[in-house]
Every structure is written in structure tokens, then in C-alpha cells.
Design a protein around this nucleic acid. Structure first.
Lengths: 294, 294
DNA sequence: CATATGTTTCTTATGTATAAAAAACGGGGG
DNA sequence: CCCCCGTTTTTTATACATAAGAAACATATG
């Protein structure tokens, strides 16, 4: 009943490990592989068995050696490596953004389960987790309602975001030169400059960099509630921008320049400068989001 | 399989409704009762059937009249009116606060389900919802870990709480005299004074008033994320103080006086005053919580 | 024709089952 | 005694089943 996505993901990862080894070379121990693959030994053994069956690995007494290099074609497709609960997220987002975007829509667990082809349990569990994003609401003994990806949602989101982000950004002014954070700041500036240099081809990579940047800022003084909120922000930007492609290149270029200005401000340790750069970036991000909603 | 807690709760509520009616009087329609009881007509009919069977209601052709007044003893016990998913919350809190309070404890779905005598599905669902409180964390393909009711938890909680509450309190200074909020403020001040007058006997009622007060402040400018965070705060205070009774009376009396000071400040519309009263209350609340943790 | 009740259909809450994955156990061999 | 591997036990992820509850439909009655 449970899907074997963990096995398939591990199998694919194992192919990459084997490619770093030579024909006839002995494999690391099951325990070592377990650590490398980040799964249990049970799964490692299943992967090894699968590879033996395909002749990639030859098991001799007390040792295993590489029989032949695996082909890329033997990899399992990406979809099969995602747990059902993860696939449901994508299905739901598509349903939400494409089909029934209007606020007030009732969400029917059973219907969604049928539509997505999964068990109701999974949909229920997903909706429970998804609730934290503030887009759906539960009614006692009845279904859920979709509150809508509305301007109000964006405004409430950004009100919190501004509080959290200004708080974190200001803290940078008090960090000693010796803090390891500065190295990360320099690294992320480099990543921004690189992306900017090749913006025409790689503008779609910005979404991930954006999330990384804001998480770095938040991380100066860890707070589990702020970290949890970063998930909300990441979700919104990930899916909303995936759906709305208008002006994507320009939007992203502007955001990169704002990030760079904020990085400069952070390094200056000047509170006024930090405040200004941070607020200006958030204002512009908010306006962009609002414009794409209406 | 599903429990009939909705029916039992409605049954109990129905007893209260009948007590306001006279013997021989005709009952409201099913639809009217549905609205009053806040359940579906299906459940109303089940309640009516149950009461008919006990002779409380007599069904004549096309009408129902009160046959005899129900006895309080006929009420279903409180526990049976709580959905399993609600009972699990209590069980879990007790388990957490009494038995295994130490940080890092692994939480085992199957074991909890056995201990609480419920299906694993329920425990899973509960843990998913409970995650938002920041006290547990999930590990992929494995169980959950309890992060502990620690000083750090309290500090992170109050950092956010301070941001949110100061923001809301300050907004009061900008409210026009005509705002309906002021009436609610006066009402809640009265409630505080009443409780204070009878503090020796009723100090335990403070927990609920506290939650009501802070939700009122937050409500001036609704924000779904702030409202969601109020749940976290309410949970912490509800359960933690239920567990730790030390100095409860004194603590609550102090808090009431701080609330009253904050109410005065709000009504003064003086930002500096509001800031001071709000911060001073939050600081004292934080210290109290911290003291009770260590 | 509107409102009340009787009937049918659909959905949610909760229990049970089971394959996949993790963890624990146990016997060698270095 | 520690690591490696074979085996067994436990736990999680997911499917499915069903009674309780909600909603929709139908009929009757004033």
C-alpha cells in the first residue's frame, strides 16, 4: 500500500555514487551507504539487491564489486520518487491556481481525493498541513473553504513579513566582524551577481535564490515561528510566480538589484541604511505581488 | 465507527432549550432548532427521536409537544461530547506535561495511539495540526521529536508576541471615538474589575479572560497570521498554567492590574503610555512563564 | 407558494489492514 | 570489542471500509 518512493529516490542517488567508482571496485559497506543516501539500511539493501539483479553490482562472498556502469536510462522518473503526500501538494496548487481560484469555494475532501486519484486520508492530511498558509479554513464537521488568493491575503502576509524581516535585518548591525554570517553574505552576493550577469537565460533561477536570501537574513537569530513563516512566503512565491509569468524577467532583475542594495546596507552596519533598503525592497515586492493578483 | 459526539452535545443543549419551555408547549420546527443548536437537521431529528423515546417529547400528528421536563441526570457526560480528535489533545498534553517532558524525546505515533486508545490515523492528524505550536518536529519517514517546553521556546514565543501585540496596541491610538471597539474595551475592563473584586474565589477564571483580552487587542486590525498565533499563546497558557499552579492567585492578580493599566493607556490614546504599559505587561508575563519553566 | 417533515445521497470522522521503511537483534570475523 | 551483514520486529505511509452527520431532494400541509 505504501509507495516505494524512498527506494526509487535512493536507487537514483546510488547510480550517482556508483558513477564515481571504477569497474571492479569494491563498494562501501551498507552502513556507509546508509549514511550517504540518508535512508535506512533496509532500503540500502533493497537498492543493492535491485542493482545486483541488473548486473550493475556483482556480489561475491563477503564483498560487492561494480559489475558494469549503470545507464542514465535506468533511473526512475522524478514523479515516482515523490511521496504521494508530496505529489498532492502539486495537484492541489494546480487545482487552486488554474481551476477554482475564486474565494469562498468549498473544498471537498472526497472530491479532491477522487480527482487526484489518492486516498481521502492523504487529502485530509495535506489540508491540515496546508492550513498554516492561511488560504483555507475548516468548518466543524463539514469541509474546508478556500479563502482566496486575494489582495487582502497579500497585505496581511506582507505586514508580518515586514515586521519579521526588519527585525532580522536590524540585528545585522550588531554582529561582530568575526561572525561567520558575513562569509555567507559575501557568498550570496556573489550568487546574485552571477545570476545578474546571465539574467536573460537564467531569470527563472531567481525564485530559489530569493528564498535562500531571505532565510539567510532570518537565520541571524533563529526563531522557530519566523522560520515557519518563511515557509509561507516561499510557498506563495514559488507557486504564485510559477503561475503568473508576466514580466518575470524584469521583476526578477529589479529584485536582484534590491537584494544587492540590502546586502550593501547590511555590511555597512548602518541602521538607517538597512531600514531603508529593507523597507524599499519589501514595498516593491508587495506592489509586484498585488499587481499580479488584481 | 465515527463517534456520535455531535448528537450527544446537541442532546445536552436541547435539554437546556426545553427547560425554557412549558409542559405541553409546542416545540420549534426542526429547522429552527437546527439553527439554534448549530447542527444539521439530521442530528436534530436524532435528538428529537431520542427525546421521544424517553417520553420528554410527545409526537402527535404534525406537531411535537413537551411531555415532561428532562432531568439533569439525563445529560451525557462532558467527555462523550468531545470528538475523539479533541480528546486526543488533552491526552497528549497530559502525556507531555506529566510523563515525558524532556526535550529530544521521540514521539511514536503507534505507541501514542495504543496509550490513548485511539486509531493511529487520529494521532497522526493531531500531530500534524499540533506542529504549528512549535513544540514538535517531524523527521522524514520516521516519527516526531518533542523539542521541549524550554526557556528558548518561551523566549521565541514572546519575541513574536511582543511584535504583534505592540503593533495592535499602537493602532488603538489612531481609532476614532466612534469605533465600536471602545465599547468592548469598557466591557472587558468591567470584567476585569469584577474578577479582581472576587479574586480569592475566582482566580482560576483569569486564563479565559486573558485570552479574550489579548484577542480583543489583536482584533483591531485583523490579520490571519496574528490570529493564528493567538492560538499558540492560548494553548501555552491554558495548558502550562493548568499544570503549574504555583502562586497562581498572585500571578493572576498582578496580570489583571497590568491589563487594567494597559486599558487605561489605550483609552488615553497616548502612544508612549501604550508602549510602556504593553511592554511592561509582556515583560512581566514572560518572566512569570520563564520562572515556572526552570 | 412557503414552510415543515420524510427520504435519499453524499461527505466527513474514525477504525482497520498492509506494504514499505526504519530500527533492533544476533551471530560471525577481524 | 567493534564493524559487517543476515534476520526479525516495529513503525510509518497509504489504502479502504463504514457509521455519523450534512446536504439535497421530495412530498405534504397549511
Amino acid at each position: 500500500m505504501r509507495t516505494d518512493t524512498t527506494f526509487k529516490r535512493a536507487f537514483n542517488d546510488m547510480i550517482d555514487i556508483i558513477r564515481t567508482l571504477d569497474l571492479g571496485e569494491e563498494l562501501p559497506s551498507e552502513n556507509a551507504l546508509r549514511a550517504q543516501l540518508g535512508v535506512s539500511r533496509t532500503t540500502v539493501r533493497k537498492v543493492l539487491a535491485g542493482m545486483s539483479a541488473r548486473g550493475i553490482i556483482i556480489s561475491e562472498a563477503h564483498r560487492r564489486i561494480i559489475g558494469e556502469q549503470p545507464l542514465q536510462a535506468e533511473r526512475y522518473p522524478k514523479e515516482e520518487t515523490l511521496a504521494i503526500s508530496e505529489q498532492v501538494e502539486t495537484s492541489f496548487m494546480e487545482w487552486m491556481l488554474r481551476d477554482n481560484a475564486c474565494p469562498g469555494t468549498e473544498i471537498n475532501e472526497a472530491e479532491l481525493a477522487r480527482k487526484f486519484g489518492v486516498a481521502t486520508t492523504i487529502v485530509r492530511e495535506f489540508l491540515n498541513r496546508f492550513q498554516k498558509y492561511g488560504l483555507i479554513e475548516k468548518r466543524q464537521n463539514a469541509g474546508w473553504i478556500f479563502k482566496g488568493f486575494t489582495a487582502n491575503f497579500a497585505l496581511e502576509l506582507f505586514e508580518i513579513r515586514e515586521m519579521f524581516e526588519m527585525r532580522s535585518a536590524r540585528l545585522f548591525a550588531t554582529l561582530p566582524d568575526s561572525s561567520p554570517v558575513w562569509k555567507q553574505v559575501r557568498a550570496i552576493r556573489a550568487a546574485h551577481l552571477e545570476l545578474l550577469a546571465d539574467i536573460d537565460a537564467r531569470f527563472q533561477d531567481f525564485s530559489e535564490l530569493d528564498s535562500r536570501f531571505h532565510r539567510l537574513i532570518a537565520a541571524v537569530s533563529p526563531n522557530r515561528f519566523i522560520e515557519g513563516f518563511q515557509d509561507v512566503i516561499a510557498m506563495v512565491f514559488h507557486y504564485h510566480y510559477q503561475w503568473n509569468k508576466r514580466d518575470e524577467r524584469t521583476r526578477n532583475e529589479i529584485a536582484i538589484r534590491e537584494h544587492l542594495a540590502l546586502i550593501d546596507a547590511l555590511e555597512s552596519r548602518n541602521i538607517a541604511l538597512i531600514d531603508r533598503a529593507c523597507r524599499s525592497h519589501l514595498t516593491s515586492a508587495r506592489e509586484t505581488l498585488l499587481r499580479s493578483i488584481v
